[in-house]
């Protein structure tokens, strides 16, 4: 893979606290790469180091093969879409978008065309003369995108850019951002705490926890084959049996135990809770050892209140080929 960003053993300390702890990552050219993790995991600090607003305490960052130490933000081939957009309130949409063009080696005459192109790209045409406070949240988001993309950066950094939007708009923007990225072929580094968002858009995901990268792999791999308990839990799979993860939707409840010898394994459980969610039904069950498991089943048949009701003794079945051993566990996570 042709690498665009290389993060080599980067640590960032604030006082005694390591916000980013010995992170090594390679991000490919044209890749949609997400940094996923809970707040305080170091994902934003890492992004800010790429943008040039923070400097690594140790290690080095290379963008497009060039060492970034000592390179100020305004000389880096990257642009950042800020969490709350950071649009200039005193400038119109058009002047927000053209803000950075002055520092590019382009002819003044070309500016209007570049601005129009960027506005069309994010479907903002006609709003040139509005001020940011006359725009909706989604429109502001688009201005922030256009302002960065008009500069044709090698890398676009996005710091939870969809966090301030409502659910519906968010889903639309996810799809739009992904298709934009594919069309432009620019490397996107996307910071989010929303696992679904990361899965929807990313080619690869790095899950971060406590300043460290727990696992960095293709989205489906992260989801299907989490390497650590943390990654498994963060992606919504909390079922850990015999040191392996089994996703809730890959387990079923049955009245009898699985036959010996096949791929199916089973455990006796008691149903503690059952929640009907429309598309799915979610069960919480307890094993004889007191472990809690979650089982998710799509409601492909009409809901039956009598099936696997609370308090019933059942067996939970899973295919042993779907049990993923936690290979990345070390130092007693």
């Amino acid at each position: 893979m042709d690498s665009c960003i290389e993060i080599r053993g980067v640590t960032k300390r604030f006082g005694d606290f390591a916000a980013v702890d010995r992170v090594t990552l390679t991000i490919g050219r044209g890749e949609f790469f997400s940094l996923l993790g809970p707040s305080g995991c170091g994902k934003t600090t890492l992004l800010r180091m790429l943008a040039g607003f923070e400097h690594p305490s140790e290690g080095s960052l290379l963008i497009d093969g060039r060492e970034m130490a000592g390179v100020p933000p305004y000389d880096r081939p990257v642009n950042l879409v800020f969490q709350h957009y950071a649009l200039f309130p005193h400038l119109t949409v058009a002047r927000n978008i053209s803000f950075g063009l002055r520092y590019q080696k382009i002819i003044r005459r070309e500016e209007p065309a570049r601005i129009a192109e960027a506005m069309e790209l994010v479907r903002l045409s006609g709003l040139e003369n509005r001020k940011p406070d006359q725009l909706s949240g989604g429109q502001r988001q688009r201005v922030a995108l256009a302002r960065a993309l008009v500069l044709r950066p090698k890398v676009l950094l996005l710091d939870e850019p969809l966090g301030a939007l409502d659910q519906k708009l968010r889903k639309e923007m996810q799809v739009e951002l992904k298709s934009l990225q594919r069309r432009l072929g620019i490397t996107f580094v996307f910071v989010t705490h929303d696992q679904e968002e990361a899965l929807t858009m990313s080619d690869r995901i790095a899950v971060m926890n406590g300043g460290r990268v727990e696992q960095a792999e293709a989205s489906a791999t992260i989801f299907e084959r989490p390497a650590t308990r943390f990654v498994a839990a963060f992606l919504g799979a909390t079922n850990i049996i015999e040191g392996a993860v089994v996703r809730p939707e890959k387990m079923v409840l049955n009245v009898s135990a699985a036959p010996d010898g096949g791929d199916w394994r089973s455990l006796a459980v008691v149903v503690e809770e059952r929640v009907y969610q429309g598309i799915n039904t979610i069960w919480t069950v307890r094993t004889d050892d007191g472990e809690r498991l979650t089982i998710c089943r799509q409601n492909t048949t009409p809901f039956d209140p009598a099936a696997s009701a609370v308090g019933e003794k059942q067996f939970v079945w899973w295919d042993r080929r779907h049990a993923v051993p936690l290979t990345g566990e070390n130092n007693g996570h």
Partner: peptide, 27 residues
């Protein structure tokens, strides 16, 4: 003044003095 506006200006290519002229002072 929202400090992220100063960062945004630097990110878009403006040096310290340009940021002052185009963002800090007008605001």
């Amino acid at each position: 003044l929202d400090r992220t506006l100063l960062e945004a200006s630097a990110d878009l290519g403006a040096s310290g003095s340009a940021t002052f002229r185009r963002v800090t002072f007008p605001l």
